[in-house]
Design a binder for these strands. Structure first.
Lengths: 153, 153
DNA sequence: ATACGGCTTCCCATAATGGTAAGGTCAAGG
DNA sequence: CCTTGACCTTACCATTATGGGAAGCCGTAT
């Protein structure tokens, strides 16, 4: 199996397979005489494992741990469970942060009539913080909350 | 006001102020004779506007639009409202995706006893269990859902 | 033989931010 | 007057995970 076939079979792009090899997430692939990488079904399976883990939001760093557990015959399911619940906690924290942003934005949008007046409360609020007596105080201390930014893909 | 004071007053790091200038999000700052950047209260206010918008999850690209509206005296509040609701929609979509990940993970974690048995269902599911003889029926669609990855900061 | 498609490596780009290094500047104190 | 320390400047590098592209080799079908 060459890299293209392995990519199709695993759902991981050839580019990413090479990348995973370069960062040693996966072992160095074997080569044909002419230098083509070759993959066994076992390696494709590992790629699928990685792919699925990425789909579940695990970072490459976490996947390294998961792979170690996967390979380790002496692993204990509690270890795996801990990784999973940590991941859940992280995701839930992010969800809460985003929900807070949504609440504030909805509050601002509701106060904005969407009409043709030359000024709405949103920009004023953004510029001056709390104004108009609005209680957009979901914004806590002066310290910034780590924020995720999203680009549509 | 030099860059350090402007940073403190706006909550935007000096590093990021220079970055915003370099990408032309903010106009080129004035300089003292010796080359120090100087900031007026108006510019500090713009930085605060940016900072608050970032806190609400707007990308720099979106903030460019918001700033244009902020500066444009002929702006219509409907335009601002549209940006806000678009942002809400994007955030909600991401929340739904993450919730789906959480559900899947919780399902896996619940099925995992957290005990000392040398194997749990999580790894088998992630890897499609080929190694341990289970079938591949846990596999869903081959198409990936766009996924966010989170690093704790 | 030739063309096409797949493979290789290497370099570049993304978004937003932090870090570091080498050097100039300013204000206070000896 | 000179030193010290805090602050400023630019420039470069790193991060995460991924895609794009070029230049060149390889394999197969016509």
């Amino acid at each position: 199996m060459n890299i293209g076939e392995a990519a199709k079979a695993s759902g991981v792009s050839a580019k990413m397979i090479r990348y995973y090899e370069s960062i040693r997430l996966i072992p160095t692939a074997g080569r044909t005489g002419s230098g083509y990488r070759v993959y066994s079904p076992t390696e494709v399976q590992m790629l699928r494992f990685i792919r699925r883990s990425r789909d579940l939001g695990f970072s490459v760093e976490k996947i390294e741990e998961l792979l170690a557990l996967w390979r380790d015959r002496t692993r204990q399911s509690a270890d795996v469970k801990r990784l999973a619940t940590d991941q859940i906690d992280g995701l839930e924290r992010k969800v809460r942060e985003m929900q807070a942003m949504i609440d504030t934005l909805r509050h601002l949008a509701d106060a904005c009539c969407g009409d043709h007046r030359p000024d709405g409360p949103i920009l004023a609020d953004l510029g001056h913080g709390v104004e108009h007596g609005s209680d957009c105080t979901t914004q806590q201390s002066g310290k910034a909350v780590p924020v995720q930014h999203f680009h549509s893909r």
